[in-house]
């Protein structure tokens, strides 16, 4: 093999190494990313993209939009009352909301109402004394926009509206939730 014959001769090997590294270095230099080069990304339900906006009614019939919470860290949790892991992680969501709402945390519990019963959802919320906003996705719009494939699905949105973590499945523990939002809450609003 040519590389092995090069290897046996240091007078050829070191220049070869230098050329390879020089070409690699120049390529790396040329492919640096200037922030001004980057076109704004379209909203997508994926880490690093702006979170797709939505507006849904809460349990009191008021319309709540994700954009209303720009400047705060938002946990968007898609759930259904019949889903075991969804039910199991609700206390953890309530606890972090109780602890960190004052620091700028919002939890939006988006009930996948198109595949749930509104009555069952209301009853579950009452039984568990959930105090964060519960939104009803009756037309399945948010599930489709967020390409819901598995319940529960949780999206962590930072203060600038970017998705910073996507957590598929559950139940999520309090520690996992806190680890994902701690740094984001520390960012200045």
């Amino acid at each position: 093999m040519p590389v092995r014959s090069l290897l046996l001769d240091p007078r050829r090997w070191w220049p070869f190494t230098a050329i390879v590294l020089l070409v690699g270095g120049l390529w790396t230099l040329g492919s640096r990313v200037a922030t001004t080069d980057e076109a704004p990304r379209q909203a997508n339900p994926h880490e690093g993209f702006p979170a797709p906006d939505f507006a849904l009614e809460n349990l009191s019939g008021e319309t709540v939009a994700l954009a209303d919470y720009r400047g705060q860290v938002v946990i968007v949790n898609l759930w259904a009352s019949w889903c075991g892991p969804c039910r199991a992680e609700m206390p953890a969501l309530q606890n972090v909301y109780d602890d960190l709402a004052a620091d700028g945390l919002v939890v939006l519990g988006v009930n996948s109402t198109a595949q749930d019963s509104e009555a069952a959802a209301r009853s579950f919320v009452a039984e568990n004394a959930l105090t964060f906003p519960i939104l009803l996705d009756r037309a399945d719009d948010v599930s489709q926009t967020y390409r819901l494939r598995s319940l529960p699905s949780t999206f962590i949105v930072d203060r600038s509206g970017l998705i910073r973590a996507v957590l598929i499945g559950g139940p999520l523990s309090e520690a996992v939730l806190r680890s994902k939002i701690e740094d984001l809450l520390a960012d200045a609003p």
Binding site: L167, E174, A175, V176, S179
Partner: peptide, 24 residues
């Protein structure tokens, strides 16, 4: 290593170390 970065959260909830979450 991940838990060590968020030691306070994991110290309060050590069972989370065996979570099935792939993002941690």
């Amino acid at each position: 290593g991940y838990a060590a970065r968020y030691s306070e959260a994991y110290a309060a909830d050590p069972l989370s170390l065996i979570s099935n979450n792939l993002a941690t």
